[in-house]
Computed example of a mutant assay.
Amino acid sequence: MQGITLRLARPADAAAMTVMQRASWLAVYGDLLGEGLLTQLAVTDHLQIWRRRLAAPGPIPMLLCLDEVVIGLLYWQPEQEGEFLTARILALYLHPGHWRQGHGKRLWQAVAMQMRRAGCECVRLWLLDGNQIGEGFYQRRGFVFDGQERTLTSLGQACLQRQMCRLL
């Protein structure tokens, strides 16, 4: 019997998080950015990013595991916006082999509860323009585009992102 669990990430999870995130990146962004662009970030560099994040004080990603194998993560932090506390989603990834099975919804619901308990009143995220899979997922959770856009340069390529938000 397969067991789905939610737990906070530990430093020892960095490699599994890296592998899962890269699989999701290639499935979602491969057509948008090209697989060659995505492979410019070396696996070892990507792993070091997660190791630094997990060693630093601050937000800890919530992991979704299937029989102890990491299949998803949601990484967020609170931000003060005037007098309101907002949750900022920094990363939400699910291994493509587990899409459309309710796992992402379960991860979102657990973390949304954490956000509310932390005193956050709304949640925001930046979505890469053209990410239809992410857009559909977030819209089904009540997120809407708020009209804000930004262009970042990622691995030498300009990437348009649009902000989505929702109340908690």
Results as ranks from 00 to 15, higher is better:
Gly72His: 04
Val28Ile: 15
Arg117Ile: 08
Ala87Cys: 11
Arg117Thr: 11
Lys105Asn: 11
Ala15Arg: 13
Ala112His: 06
Phe145Trp: 14
Val70Met: 06
Gly3Asn: 14
Gly102Glu: 09
Leu167Gly: 04
Asp31Arg: 08
Ala91Met: 07
Asp146Phe: 01
Leu74His: 04
Gly134Ala: 07
Met1Asp: 12
Leu152Ala: 05
Gly104Asn: 13
Met17Trp: 08
Arg7Phe: 15
Gln148Leu: 12
Trp50Tyr: 11
Val28Thr: 15
Cys122Thr: 02
Pro57Gln: 15
Gly58Gln: 08
Leu92Lys: 01
His98Arg: 10
Tyr138Val: 00
Gln48Cys: 02
Gln114Ser: 07
Met20Cys: 05
Ile4Glu: 12
Leu85Trp: 01
Met164Gly: 07
Leu41Phe: 03
Ser154Leu: 12
Tyr75Pro: 01
Val69Met: 12
Ala42Gly: 01
Leu64Asn: 08
Ala14His: 09
Leu107Asp: 11
Ile49Pro: 06
Leu37Ser: 04
Thr18Lys: 00
Cys165Glu: 13
Gly136Ala: 14
Glu121Val: 10
Met20Ala: 03
Leu90Lys: 08
Ala91Ile: 00
Ala112Glu: 13
Thr18Phe: 00
Leu92Ala: 09
Leu38Trp: 06
Gln114Met: 08
Tyr75Leu: 05
Tyr29Asp: 09
Gln157Glu: 06
Asp67Glu: 12
Thr18Val: 02
Gln101His: 13
Ala55Gln: 13
Val19Gly: 00
Leu74Lys: 05
Gly97Thr: 10
Thr86Trp: 04
Arg100Glu: 15
Gly72Asn: 06
Met20Ile: 02
Met113Phe: 12
Gly147Thr: 01
Tyr138Cys: 02
Glu79Gly: 02
Cys159Thr: 06
Leu26Arg: 10
Gly130Met: 02
Phe137Ser: 03
Cys122Lys: 10
Leu66Val: 13
Gly136Cys: 12
Thr151Lys: 05
Ala27Leu: 07
Val69Leu: 13
Ala118Gly: 05
Tyr75Cys: 00
Ile49Cys: 13
Thr86Tyr: 02
Cys122Val: 00
Ala118Leu: 09
Val123Ser: 06
Gly82Gln: 03
Gln80Ala: 07
Trp99Ile: 09
Pro59Ile: 01
His46Ala: 09
Trp99Gly: 12
Ala110Tyr: 11
Asp129Ser: 11
Arg150Pro: 00
Gly147Ile: 04
Leu155Thr: 03
Trp126Arg: 01
Gln161Glu: 14
Cys122Gln: 10
Ile89Trp: 01
Ile89Pro: 03
Gly119Tyr: 08
Arg7His: 14
Leu125Ile: 03
Glu135Phe: 09
Thr153Glu: 09
Gly130Glu: 03
Asp45Trp: 04
Leu94Val: 14
Asp67Asn: 14
Gln2Met: 15
Gly30Cys: 04
Met20Ser: 07
Thr153Arg: 08
Ala9Cys: 10
Met113Gly: 14
Pro96Trp: 01
Trp76Lys: 00
Arg150Thr: 00
Phe145Val: 02
His103Tyr: 15
Thr39Gln: 05
Leu73Met: 12
Trp126Phe: 03
Gln109Ile: 14
Gly130Phe: 01
Asp146Val: 00
Ala15Val: 04
Asp67Gly: 05
Leu152Gly: 03
Arg106Cys: 14
Leu6Met: 13
Leu152Arg: 07
Met164Asn: 02
Gly97Phe: 06
Pro78Tyr: 00
Arg106Met: 15
Arg100Trp: 14
Pro96Ala: 06
Gln114Asp: 12
Ala12Ile: 09
Thr5Cys: 12
